[in-house]
Every structure is written in C-alpha cells, then in structure tokens.
Amino acid sequence: MHRWGMVIDLDKCTACQTCVVACLAENNIALIGPEESAKGRTIHWIELVPYIQGEYPHVKVRLIPRPCMHCDHPPCTKVCPVYATYLNEEGIVAQINYRCIGCRYCTTACPYTVKYFNWYEPRWPDEMRGALNRDVSIRTKGVVEKCTFCHHRLLKAREKAKAEGRDLLPEDYVPACVEACPSGAMYFGDLNDPFSTVSQLSRERRAFRLMEDLGTEPKVYYLSEGM
C-alpha cells in the first residue's frame, strides 16, 4: 500500500510561486477578483506563507510553500459531520465537495489553514470555459475545497500503468506543483518505500515538519535552509 508524501527543499526553493499557479490551472480553482481578495477570500490550495522574524536590519523572512499536509492524524476529518473529508487508505486526506454541507468546522480545525470555503459561485467568462481542466470537477458555492495531491492524476496514472500491464512507477504520478517547480525543490512519492527519494529525504538531517508538536503527523516534509 502506498503512502503518498511530499518533500519541499527550502534551500532550493526560489519562492517563485510556479507551484501556486500550476495548481490554480490544474484544479479549476475559482477566479477571485480584487474586491473579494481584499476580504481574504481567495483560494490557493498551495500558497506561500511568510514567516518574518527580527527587526531591521536583522530580519529573516521565510516563505514556505504550504499545500495540504495530508496529516496521518488530521484534525479536520474528526470534526466533519457528514464524512465529506476523511483519510483514505493511501494517506490522502480526501475532500468530497459534493458531500460537503459547508459547515466550515474543518476550516477552523485545520491548524495549517489549508481548507478554503467557496464564498462565491465559481464563474468563468464564456471565452475561458473550454480551457478548464476536464479531469477535475468544479466546486459550487458553499462547499469547502483543498489540495488533493492532484488525486485525479493518480487515478489516470494507475489506470494507464495497469492497462500497460506494469506497476505504478514513481514518475507516473506527480502533482502539478511538483511537476512545474523550476528549481527542483519539490519531491513527491511513496513514503512507505524506504528507497524512494521522498522517504530518504524525509529522514535527512535537515528535515522538519510544520507544527510537529501538535501530533498531526503531516506527510509534507520540509528541508531547512542553510548547510
């Protein structure tokens, strides 16, 4: 059984946000205009989170790309009254948008704030409709959405591998953000496989996870900056 996880090397990361835009394009995320943005209602399944420490001139700013952590003990699933979000067998924290009733308990419960509520009906100008990704469903107003590790890509990759009569290879299934990363700072793969890149990197000296003390056991690892 796979256990999907991600490693982000902050030393290689350039904070360019290609991952952010690749995700917007891949997952049909709603366009949020200036007024709505000003209310903080944008949706970004992966987003750069700034940590500003110190005062001028001794300032250190860290920009941390933050997708859903796909925790092994996810706080969000425990509060969902309708089983719209749950941890599946392969370690992916699923969010079934059509099941969601929009109570937003999970958005509150998530310590990483990766869950986004659709405040508006997602709409695109007619000129753009055909450019949406037909592999990912469009959400409706009033439901919560979040990063799925591009699970639709896994469905397609697994189907392809099986049709070709072979095992799923690591390069078959890569989320859009990892695929687009220009500096090669993002890795994705099976944490259960002790020889996979992610599993080796997750055991590296520089590896850490966000808010580890909460006991959520995230499956997104970071490699710290510096030596």
Binding site: A25, P125, A180
Partner: peptide, 18 residues
C-alpha cells in the same frame, strides 16, 4: 527541461482573455 515559471502557465489566460 520541463520546468516553468508562473507566467508561463498563465499564458492560458492571456490567450483566452475575454
């Protein structure tokens, strides 16, 4: 070599700008 910057992906919105 397969990588992109954020602008590259947004070219879709440049093409279909209403």
């Amino acid at each position: 070599r397969g990588a992109l910057c954020p602008k590259g992906i947004a070219a879709l919105q440049g093409l279909y700008d209403p």
